[in-house]
Design a protein around this nucleic acid. Structure first.
Lengths: 127, 127
DNA sequence: TTATACTGTAGTAATTATTATTACAGTATA
DNA sequence: TATACTGTAATAATAATTACTACAGTATAA
């Protein structure tokens, strides 16, 4: 969100990972990694070489926060357990993960519904 | 959820932390710590000493998944950044946290609305 | 009244996940 | 051809989570 906000506020410039990293106060390599992710979702484009950098591929008014959420959350649900290996000899332990996944799917859907109400343009206009 | 499901399925027994830990496949101390949390929300009660353990304080049909969510998530929003210290010299960096918190508040509210549709009783009946 | 089987809790170790750092090949620009 | 970028890998440092050990306190039952 922070990266995309900077890009939305400076829509026609190629921002460098160093510049963005300065605002986030993190290492530029971390920014470049997230940039690869945002590129994979066709939200931004990047240019190598001197005077290169990153910029938005779409108008901020066409980017919904739900789009960003779905891209950034990856394949795992927001509430999914990073590691959960319950006892398969227990009827509950054997099935708890799939039952919870179902609840977690519902949660992610609810989040997407909520975030589809707001665009990146509306968000960036707060600054 | 796993702990409460076990308690809901065995509503009149005092389950021990060792028994619960066996189903979760985690250390009993971890279970006891979470039990302290569930007690603080008045969802369960515990009994010390021999033949002690834990049991539900309410009927599963009166416990909504949203109640559990609000208790377990603690004071932080689900999507809150554990550590985020952006550059205060940047107009975006200076305000991004508060603006994101507002979005995260909306997300948590959406989750609560979703989870208030289901009770622990309905969840436990899947097993 | 005493052995037993629990909870509650502190302290520390181990593990896992995240972020930072260093390095450098590749590329576009001036 | 020097420069300033991206893209990416490898490794180190840090932070967060979970496990483990230990034991004081407490209720039960023989």
């Amino acid at each position: 969100m922070h990266i995309l906000t900077l890009l939305a506020l400076d829509k026609d410039s190629w921002l460098t990972s160093a510049h963005i990293a300065g605002s986030l106060n993190v290492n530029p390599v971390i920014v470049r990694k997230e940039i690869m992710n945002l590129k994979s979702g066709n939200l931004i484009e990047s240019k190598e070489g001197k005077n290169g950098g990153v910029r938005l591929l779409k108008d901020p008014s066409e980017i919904y926060l739900s789009d960003i959420f779905q891209l950034v959350k990856g394949k795992h649900n927001v509430l999914s357990l990073s590691k959960n290996t319950p006892n398969p000899a227990c009827p509950v332990g054997r099935q708890i993960n799939e039952k919870l996944e179902s609840v977690f799917d519902n949660i992610d859907d609810a989040i997407i519904r909520e975030l589809s109400k707001q665009t990146l343009d509306a968000f960036k206009n707060q600054f």
